[in-house]
């Protein structure tokens, strides 16, 4: 394998990381919003979120990506492969993150909220000052675990032509008629990425205790 080929694999790794990062940036806050809706049993919205979570958790990332990439333009909205990819990863991970946030919220002791309420804190203030600072610590290990799973499902976006790691590897293989070396190097890149994330997860677990949710 040539240096150029290796560099294009690294470029693919860059694409994987940027799009995964964008998906996480979308999915983690969205998941929190969905989790709060479920936790607060918001009328009308809460059952909708429940269906959304159930549906998204059973939808393969590949199928979701194809759906978004091909169906949204028919509604007259222009969407490129990159946007479709970020939406796919973000919407998918949001469903799983919703469950992590929700379980963290459910584990929250009612006494504390009671106390906060008795001090006259508004709901927004209660959330910002009392709940969230504790919640994110409890949920972080679960969230990082979900990020690892997101990276592992990220090759799905290759289906709409994004040249991430796996697609870069098949490209090189097609050019050189020797697919095994680029595939092995690509596998090695994934292993490094995942090991870093698993290490990160262990670190957060040590810092903030057990994962708040079953992942």
């Amino acid at each position: 394998m040539t240096t150029a080929a290796f560099l294009s694999l690294l470029q693919g790794a860059g694409v994987t990381l940027v799009l995964s990062g964008a998906g996480i940036a979308l999915g983690v806050p969205l998941g929190l919003l969905l989790g709060l809706i479920r936790w607060g049993r918001v009328p009308v919205l809460s059952p909708i979120v429940m269906v959304y979570v159930s549906l998204l958790r059973s939808t393969p990332a590949v199928t979701l990506c194809l759906l978004i990439f091909f169906a949204i333009p028919t509604m007259g909205i222009d969407i490129g492969p990159w946007t479709a990819s970020v939406l796919t990863l973000g919407l998918n991970t949001a469903a799983f993150n919703c469950e992590i946030w929700r379980s963290g919220l459910n584990n929250f002791s009612p006494d504390q909220l009671e106390a906060a309420r008795s001090f006259g804190m508004t709901p927004a203030l209660r959330f910002r000052r009392i709940i969230f600072p504790q919640l994110w610590r409890a949920c972080l290990p679960g969230l990082v675990n979900e990020m690892t799973l997101l990276i592992k499902s990220s090759p799905a976006i290759a289906v709409v032509g994004v040249v991430e790691i796996t697609r870069a590897a098949t490209r090189i293989g097609a050019q050189t008629y020797d697919p095994l070396p680029p595939m092995l190097v690509a596998t090695g890149i994934y292993i490094v990425l995942i090991v870093v994330f698993v290490g990160l997860q262990r670190l957060t677990e040590r810092l903030y205790g057990q994962a708040g949710a079953a992942a």
């Binding site: 090759p155 697919p179 095994l180 595939m183 092995l184 596998t187 994934y190 292993i191 090991v195 698993v198």
Partner: peptide, 17 residues
């Protein structure tokens, strides 16, 4: 640590090597 698609590629494109 290996994504499933990577393994599928290895089986489909790599094993013939």
């Amino acid at each position: 640590c290996i994504p499933f698609l990577m393994l599928a590629y290895l089986a489909y494109y790599g094993l013939p090597s």
